[in-house]
Amino acid sequence: MSAAEENAAILEVADMRVWYGTRGDPVRAVDGVSFSIGAGETLGLVGESGCGKSTLGRGTLGLLPPMASVSGSVRYDGRELVGMDPKELRDMRGPELGLIFQEPMTRLDPLQTIEKHFRETLRTHEPDLDDDEVRRRSLEALAGMGIPPTRFKQYPHEFSGGMRQRIMIALALVLNPKVLIADEPTTALDVIVEAQILGILADLRRNFDTAVLLITHNLGIVAEACDRVAVMYAGEIVEQGDAREVFAEPAHPYTRELLRATISLETTGLNYIDGAPPSLIDPPPACRFHPRCPNAMAVCAELAPEETTGGGGQRVRCWLNGPEERIPEGGREPLEREEIAAAEEA
């Protein structure tokens, strides 16, 4: 555990679960996830797409669609957000809890100018601000993102994707949130804009002590911008710890595969993880990664792995990392896969 996590965890999520759908078989998009972030700390949340990262981010702010249900605990600054009065939670969104979404192109209301977006945001949370103050603070936030004041009265469609994302960030930052959840803020953008935005996020935690949850599927971004990392697979966090330690000594085969995929993408571009993430309606039993795991053992298909501490001090759920005494006899044998069935299907 890092010092920041121990001392000043501003956001603590414990055993969070999110299901989508009320009828039939629900999608268990987040299934028993725990993590915490301290003030001024950036936690990177990585995993392939479809493993529940966005759901986790939105669930933390209580911004899930009506057909989703949440259980577990989200504590912000000592207050429990799950089950909180919607009005109270709403007032916290913006000044306390900020969110930046993935798709910048469609995130701004096409019928409102940038000025109106800012005025609305500021006035909602600080109704007494006068026009001059609204203008001053908006322009300041925009200037911080490199958007010139001359474009204040323009409409979203007049900006490029990178500019819109920077406007979105300015819009989230104008209220100085204590916690910022950034859901793939750079995925749709080119590398230059990506670097700019990562720089902005880095400034943020240095200058404002903001806690950032940075969701991405790109490990390179985590290495660059995050203090700690949580690796998510099929609705669960399989490994989390200090980013440098985890990258130096990944304990979970999924993390290793992700790293291998990232590194090779930069070199040859040919290395992907075999297979696809499982359906979250009916995920594989026991360890969810065992069907794709190159190191799978007999036990991995039988028992859900428990949380252990890895070589780099990280928390990891993988039988390779023990605990030894809980593995049944013969559990360390390599997993016999039903190759024939798979071949027949194909």
Binding site: L61, L63, R90, D91, M92, R93, G94, P95, G98, L99, F101, E103, T106, R107, L108, D109, P110, E120, T121, T124, H125, M168, L171
Partner: peptide, 17 residues
Amino acid sequence: EEDYIRTAYAKGLPDKR
């Protein structure tokens, strides 16, 4: 269903607005 409606909620705007 539009993304910018989610943005509006994420900014903490009242439902009515």
